[in-house]
Write a protein that binds this DNA or RNA. Structure first.
Lengths: 196, 196
DNA sequence: GCAAATTAATGATTTATTCAAG
DNA sequence: CTTGAATAAATCATTAATTTGC
């Protein structure tokens, strides 16, 4: 377990969040250049690829104009699938979370993204999702724990309200997800969990 | 509301998983798993955000992140708050819905928005929400109807009928959030999905 | 030691629920 | 009430971390 290879030990700044995912190779420091002033233009839909699921044979013959660039070996993930946060990114996000941030609004997301972008490829939606997921999963964890210690006296820590009035929206490019109606009439909501 | 985040001094991680993932990424051979192919088209989603600072209890003055918002609120003057669809817009949307569209992807949304924009101010998120809500509400309606058939009893409030305009103004605000935790909500998840 | 196979995490979507404007 | 907007819960899907057989 715990293979501490301090090959490059630089990133060991925080002992508390020391080893979550060792996966450095982050570009680290990007000279910033701040190519864009980011003056505004916060809205505007960014169009991106379109992935039409089954739903019909259309599917456009055009191969695809996707980037891919075949780089991917680049700094790290960059593969194109899903965001893979670096240690630094996670650290900052957790810091913000602990600081009380739960559902950052658009501006906050923008700033955070810009900041985290120094450590690796990242988009605003990643930040958004991270907060959503982290919040939800911390909650589950807590619930599960509290169930575990029925006798314990330390329950407190209420779910912290949340609900920041933020406005943002993510458009999804529906993938080819499940399309057939699951006839699962009774999906058994709890699954393996112990729901009260 | 809880405004009690902050003093969250100690958090601690999972005792058992001190180190989550620290495997330095094994080469893992490309393999690419031909099975999936996935086309790899990275779909960079777009994070749409628009800011509507006020309009609600604002809290979470957490970090210094909040600063310059409230700058441009007027981007949506005239009515200010929410989208008010015109008849043409609704008509087109319903047409699309009946045609089978349920969750348009970004490109589709963009097109629809562009089209509907001819009849009135509208944004992509409005289209997105409309489909979300319409789908959900058609579903409930159907569920309710199927349930109601057993009794054939009027549910009172005959829908559609009467005063759509709601004479009594809503007192607005002063709503309260109720926790669903206590109530044993039997959310009947199972339902037959009726696809046209 | 190495990879395929398995498992645990967690990123990304979809669905259900809630709030509140009109 | 109707329904646009927003959030949370549930679910799906993919990748990293482990385990296992050789």
């Amino acid at each position: 377990m715990k293979v501490h290879h301090f090959a490059r030990g630089f990133w060991e700044h925080e002992p508390s969040l020391g080893c979550k995912r060792l996966r450095p190779l982050a570009p680290k420091l990007v000279t910033t250049t701040t190519s864009t002033a980011t003056a505004a233009t916060v809205n505007a839909f960014d169009l991106k690829r379109f992935i039409r699921p089954e739903s019909g044979p259309r599917k456009l013959g055009s191969s695809d104009f996707q980037k891919k660039e075949s780089a991917q070996v680049e700094s790290q993930q960059a593969g194109g699938t899903r965001w893979n946060p670096t240690q630094e990114q996670i650290g900052i996000l957790e810091m913000l979370y602990r600081g009380g941030m739960r559902t950052p609004n658009a501006q906050q997301i923008e700033q955070i993204t810009a900041q985290l972008g120094k450590y690796g490829k990242i988009e605003g939606k990643n930040v958004f999702y991270w907060f959503q997921n982290h919040k939800a999963r911390e909650r589950q964890k807590q619930k599960r724990n509290s169930l575990g210690l029925i006798h314990s006296h330390i329950i407190s820590t209420s779910p912290t309200t949340t609900t920041t009035a933020t406005n943002y929206l993510l458009l999804s490019t529906s993938k080819k997800k499940k399309k057939i109606a699951d006839i699962v009439v009774q999906k058994k909501k709890g699954k393996g969990k112990i729901e009260p």
